[in-house]
Amino acid sequence: MPAKIIVLTSGKGGVGKTTSAAAVAAGLAMRGHKTVVIDFDVGLRNLDLIMGCERRVVFDFINVINGDAKLNQALIRDKRNDNLYIFPTSQTRDKDALKRDGVERVLDELKDSFDYIICDSPAGIEHGAITALYFADVAVIVTNPEVSSVRDSDRIIGILASKSRRAEHNLDPVEIHLLLTRYSPDRVEKGEMLTIDDVKEILSIPLLGVVPESESVLRASNTGTPVVFDEGSPAGQAYLDAVARLLGEPRELRFLRPERRGFFRSLFGRA
């Protein structure tokens, strides 16, 4: 089976694209699928930090596109999971260095040796974001339950339907999923945050997962560990559920109830 190309995109910045790309890629690798996660955010690379391999970057995506390095020189194998590879991008070049035909050539080469290719898109709807989503078979729309994020997600969904390779070549449309992140059951209960159903209804795309706002996400990024490797973390569990659904396995939604903390837990506990 040829590799599936999955893009994580959102339009808006800061909603958790890179965190989610790292988590989904690591989750797929944990499930035994050979997976590579590519940073498309040229000039503002951060996937390497989130994955904890920032000191191992020698060659990058742009070097390979330009033929200055071979693919296997640039790919970084994750030390925690043998199925997981990180493909960092350039920190010094600008986004125009992402030439579409060059990207296509590199993706075609990756398709031979991987099951899943995860594309971590930059924010915005400019060249970098369009290139990241162009070749996708599947798009995961990372959305926060917040007005500007939902509006930008709607815009990106429109772009996927008109400007992706599948749209331009009249192929089957890109399979689109909603990943709702930074969801706070507490605030939803108080009527301060859009509900899951609100966002689903407004965007009218199927729900892949709901990741609760969780302190473990910051702890994971502090240490350069994809949050799915943190066994006890609700966010990590929620991402693993989303990965299972991506693989076609039904999973109940979890972590949607406000946490009732006991007195001692609120004094000494951790989320």
């Binding site: 009527g191 945050m193 859009l194 509900t195 609100d198």
Partner: peptide
């Protein structure tokens, strides 16, 4: 408390 989430939904 005003249900601000409902306002957000309607505006969107």
């Amino acid at each position: 408390r005003r249900n601000t989430a409902a306002i957000a939904r309607d505006r969107l």
